Amino acid sequence: KSSGQLMAEWGLDDVDYLFSEEDYHTLTNYKAFSQFLRPLIAKKNPKIPMSKMMTVLGAKWREFSANNP
Results as ranks from 00 to 15, higher is better:
residue 18 L to M: 13
residue 7 M to C: 07
residue 23 D to K: 01
residue 49 P to S: 15
residue 14 D to F: 01
residue 33 F to C: 00
residue 25 H to Y: 14
residue 37 L to V: 14
residue 16 D to I: 03
residue 8 A to F: 12
residue 15 V to L: 09
residue 26 T to Q: 12
residue 21 E to T: 07
residue 30 Y to R: 05
residue 44 K to L: 12
residue 19 F to A: 03
residue 4 G to H: 06
residue 39 P to H: 01
residue 51 S to G: 13
residue 7 M to I: 06
residue 16 D to V: 04
residue 2 S to R: 07
residue 34 S to G: 06
residue 1 K to L: 04
residue 23 D to H: 11
residue 20 S to D: 12
residue 13 D to Q: 15
residue 7 M to L: 12
residue 34 S to M: 05
residue 24 Y to E: 04
residue 35 Q to T: 11
residue 28 T to N: 11
residue 11 G to D: 08
residue 57 L to K: 00
residue 30 Y to N: 02
residue 28 T to G: 09
residue 45 N to C: 06
residue 13 D to A: 15
residue 11 G to N: 09
residue 17 Y to V: 07
residue 17 Y to L: 08
residue 23 D to Q: 08
residue 18 L to Q: 15
residue 3 S to D: 03
residue 30 Y to H: 04
residue 64 F to L: 01
residue 6 L to D: 05
residue 37 L to C: 02
residue 42 A to K: 15
residue 25 H to V: 13
residue 16 D to K: 04
residue 2 S to I: 06
residue 44 K to A: 13
residue 51 S to A: 07
residue 19 F to P: 11
residue 20 S to C: 09
residue 25 H to P: 04
residue 51 S to V: 01
residue 11 G to L: 09
residue 7 M to Q: 02
residue 13 D to W: 11
residue 1 K to D: 06
residue 32 A to H: 07
residue 8 A to C: 10
residue 2 S to Y: 07
residue 57 L to D: 01
residue 6 L to E: 04
residue 10 W to Q: 07
residue 25 H to G: 11
residue 18 L to V: 15
residue 10 W to I: 07
residue 5 Q to A: 12
residue 67 N to E: 11
residue 5 Q to L: 10
residue 46 P to W: 03
residue 20 S to L: 07
residue 21 E to C: 02
residue 45 N to Q: 03
residue 11 G to V: 03
residue 25 H to D: 13
residue 27 L to N: 00
residue 19 F to W: 12
residue 3 S to W: 04
residue 13 D to N: 15
residue 39 P to E: 11
residue 2 S to V: 06
residue 31 K to R: 12
residue 22 E to K: 13
residue 67 N to T: 15
residue 14 D to R: 06
residue 48 I to L: 13
residue 30 Y to C: 02
residue 15 V to C: 05
residue 58 G to N: 14
residue 12 L to R: 01
residue 64 F to T: 01
residue 1 K to M: 07
residue 27 L to C: 06
residue 8 A to S: 14
residue 5 Q to N: 09
residue 45 N to E: 02
residue 10 W to R: 05
residue 31 K to C: 09
residue 34 S to T: 15
residue 3 S to K: 02
residue 21 E to G: 09
residue 32 A to N: 10
residue 23 D to F: 00
residue 24 Y to Q: 08
residue 17 Y to T: 03
residue 45 N to H: 07
residue 9 E to I: 06
residue 6 L to T: 04
